[in-house]
Amino acid sequence: MSEKLVIKGLTKKFSKTDGVENINLTVKERELLTLLGPSGCGKTTILRAIGGFHKIDSGKILLDGKEIQNLPPEKRPTGMVFQSYNLWPHMTVYENMAFGLQIRKHSKAQMKEEINEMLKLVRMDGSEKKYPGQLSGGQQQRIAIARALVLKPSLLLLDEPFSALDAKIRGQMREELKRIQREAGLTVIFVTHDQEEAMAISDTIAVMRRGYMEQIGKPEEIYDNPKTRFVAEFIGEMNFLEEGGTSFAVRPEDITLIKQENGPYRILQMMSLGHYTQAIVVDNKGNEVKVFMEKDEARLFAADDCVACRFDRKQVFAA
């Protein structure tokens, strides 16, 4: 796979503490890379810098080998979809989609074909004559994605596109996006603060914190081997424990409960979460530990049972 986007030493400061500094990032062809982090970590700043909506202080942005950092947004071969208010309410779906094509002087017949094809891809064919106000939030985001894709962008930029939607639709849209990306062979940069979403759709995740990259890697890599305590805490569930003066971290699914009278832990609560069960156990000092187990296994335990914990996989982080 060849390199699609290369960012070298990108710096964009809003104030002394606010902004991103010396960012280096490579996105490969047909890759879906997610910038993941809490709000204010700079993920959107990077995305907007790539799209041309922030003038950067220093650094280089290379797309398909060409420097684009000095181009205005309308001259960049990127397509952006925002969290909301993407569509123009005074235009129909067709007019929304045709806006960029008209600027590129496509013929009417060609335009119609391209728009139809794109609407089919996002499963919104037949909605050409509707106004954005007549569509649901999820449908509007589909149209926004289609409008970006109809211009055949070299790189698709998605700025929390699903976070204004309700949970169920959000899940559907993730699957849709993954399918569209596969079918159209897209390179995508996706920004989100939702680690579950990032785990689900990404080929690569870049975890960000306070303006720099904490860790870049495949989702499973980041989940199994978080490099820092921040990443471990931010991605998935993690217990932070102390034993004999050394502190370590362990995932709830890497703990096995063993029935033991006078065991060091007592079960506080058992909670069925559908396909698995969550137990919260507490030691005599009041430290709570979260444990995930299979449903069958959970039948052996009840609240107030005394247990011991076996930690199958510990991780240690420098302070």
Partner: peptide
Amino acid sequence: HIQQEESARDVGA
């Protein structure tokens, strides 16, 4: 909304 203007810039206007 500013996004509505930015989207238009983004598609080439």
